[in-house]
C-alpha cells in the first residue's frame, strides 16, 4: 500500500508527512482504513512505544478493514470505532487529559486527519503538533456553504449535499477549523443543469 502523491497543493490544504516515532509519555494514534498500514510501520520502527500507545482504529468508508491486524499489534489501549463521530468524545477526553509529552498521530483519509487536527487545536495543541500521514482513499469531507451541513466521504464532483440536497461542486478551499472543503451549488444559475458526477477523490 503506497503513500499518496498529491498534485500541486492548493494554498489552504494541509501538507501531510510520514509518521515517525517521537519520544513521549504517551501516544494517541488515530487511524482509518488504509492508515492501519502506517500504524504498523510506526510500531515496527519503535516497538517500545506500543505499551504507552492508545490506538483508535476506524474501518474505511471504502470497505478497508484492518481491525484484526490492529487488535493484534499490542497497543496498551486499543479501540475499534465505527465512525469518527462515534469516537470523537473519547478522543477529546484523551486530548484533554493528556499530560506534557502526549504525542498525537493521525493517519488515513484527509477527513480523519483533519478532524484529529481540529480536535487537537480545540484542546489547545498547535495544529502542527499532530503528525499526519495520508493513506488510502482521497475521499473528502465537504461543508455545504449554503446549509452548513457536512457530507462525509465525498468521492465525486459534483455531489449531492446529504443535508439540503443541493448539487454541489467541491471548491479547492479547505478550513482546518471545520476540517472540511467547501461545497458550492453548481446549478444555481441554471437549475437542473448538472454536469455528470466524476469520481475525482477515489
Amino acid at each position: 500500500m503506497s503513500k499518496t502523491d498529491f498534485g500541486p497543493s492548493i494554498k489552504s490544504r494541509p501538507v501531510y508527512g510520514v509518521l515517525s516515532p517521537r519520544p513521549g509519555s504517551s501516544h494517541l494514534i488515530v487511524a482509518d482504513g488504509e492508515g492501519g498500514a502506517a500504524v504498523e510501520a510506526l510500531f515496527a520502527q519503535a516497538p517500545e512505544m506500543k505499551a504507552k500507545a492508545h490506538l483508535i482504529y476506524i474501518p474505511g468508508a471504502n470497505g478497508t478493514d484492518m481491525s484484526t491486524a490492529m487488535a493484534a499489534l499490542g497497543a496498551g489501549q486499543y479501540n475499534r470505532a465505527p465512525t469518527y463521530a462515534s469516537v470523537r468524545s473519547r478522543i477529546v477526553k484523551v486530548l484533554g487529559d493528556g499530560h506534557m509529552g502526549l504525542q498525537v498521530y493521525a493517519t488515513g483519509t484527509e477527513s480523519l486527519m483533519g478532524q484529529v487536527q481540529r480536535d487537537a487545536m480545540e484542546a489547545g495543541l498547535p495544529h502542527d503538533a499532530v503528525q499526519t500521514e495520508h493513506r488510502g482513499s482521497l475521499a473528502r469531507r465537504v461543508q455545504c456553504v449554503h446549509c452548513k451541513g457536512i457530507t462525509e466521504n465525498v468521492t465525486t464532483d459534483p455531489f449531492v449535499c446529504s443535508h439540503c440536497g443541493l448539487n454541489l461542486f467541491v471548491r479547492d478551499h479547505y478550513s482546518r477549523r471545520l476540517a472540511a472543503f467547501q461545497g458550492v451549488n453548481i446549478d444555481a444559475e441554471d437549475p437542473g443543469e448538472v454536469p455528470p458526477a466524476e469520481e475525482r477523490f477515489k
Binding site: 490544504r13 456553504v145 452548513k148 471548491r171 479547492d172 478551499h173 478550513s175 477549523r177
Partner: peptide, 17 residues
C-alpha cells in the same frame, strides 16, 4: 466569500481560491 468558512485561516489560506 464566506467569513463563517474562512474564520481562523492564515493569509495565504483565506486567499486560496
Amino acid at each position: 466569500w464566506s467569513l463563517d468558512f474562512d474564520i481562523g485561516m492564515s493569509f495565504h489560506e483565506w486567499h486560496a481560491p
